[in-house]
Amino acid sequence: MELIQVEQLTKKFDDLVAVDHIDFSIAQGEIFGFLGPNGAGKTTTLSILSTLLKPTSGKAYVNGFDVESQKSQVRRSIGVVFQDPTLDEELTARENMDIHGRLYGMKQRREKIDELLTLVELDQRKNQLVKQFSGGMKRRLEIARGLMHEPSILFLDEPTLGLDPQTRNHLWDYIRDLNQRKGVTIILTTHYMDEAEKLSNRIAIIDHGKIIAMDTPKALKEQIGGSMIRIESPDTGLVADRLSTLPWLTKINAHNGFVDLNVQQAEKRIAQVIKALNDITIDSVALQTPTLEDVFLSYTGRTIREQEASAKDRMRQHRKTSR
């Protein structure tokens, strides 16, 4: 059963197209990840799905309900953990949960609060003011609160942004556990490769408001063709020229000082590559199995970090021109 169905969804802010005619559907029980640089349109998509933003055009259905005309039913079906904190820090953990439960019209709140706070290991601190919590604890509390009204879908916007590695690992365990034990369908956005890869059953790579690839992490990596030989050289143009004639090459891509060769059974081709480049200066040769970063690179010609820098430029430009 498709829990989320999105057709030609578009959102424009003045002249900036944040989400550009995207289509996707998410099945019950999936962990679905949106991967892309900051400013790619992930949060905007999530805001539309959670009824906080109106789409410019296109349709989106959550749990079978239209996000524009059936807001209340959509809101009841989803739990949302926003990128920025939304807790009342002057209240205790229990009070934050209780207010949430009341807003959703819940009768039996006490047991549910205890159960969820135990799940995220905050039951010992339920009567402490939230302002005394660490960043990781606040995040866990927000996740617990998002689950309070037993939504069938949980939205997580950059769930581990700004958290230390240990807390991130911990949180990933909770998220997987929630999905497996409670059957909650989870949709998350992230610009961390490892997060997308470790958590998601399926990933949509999103850039400039468009979905440029969507599949399981494994399939995405296989699509770009086996493993990869990465050659570092001061003269990448020459290297690329020389190698592009090799018949067994599936793909070649030169970018800031590196040439990446996508090759089947790369380990057996290294010797031939070095031989072909015998008169060109080479700084290093490395054998790499593909990562999602490579997938992103192969579709956009840039790494996520490069893309992020330029996205910030675009935003700045946009802000200037819109003044």
Partner: peptide
Amino acid sequence: IGFLKETLVAPV
């Protein structure tokens, strides 16, 4: 503090 978002996304 973002709490307004929490109330605005509730089915109310």
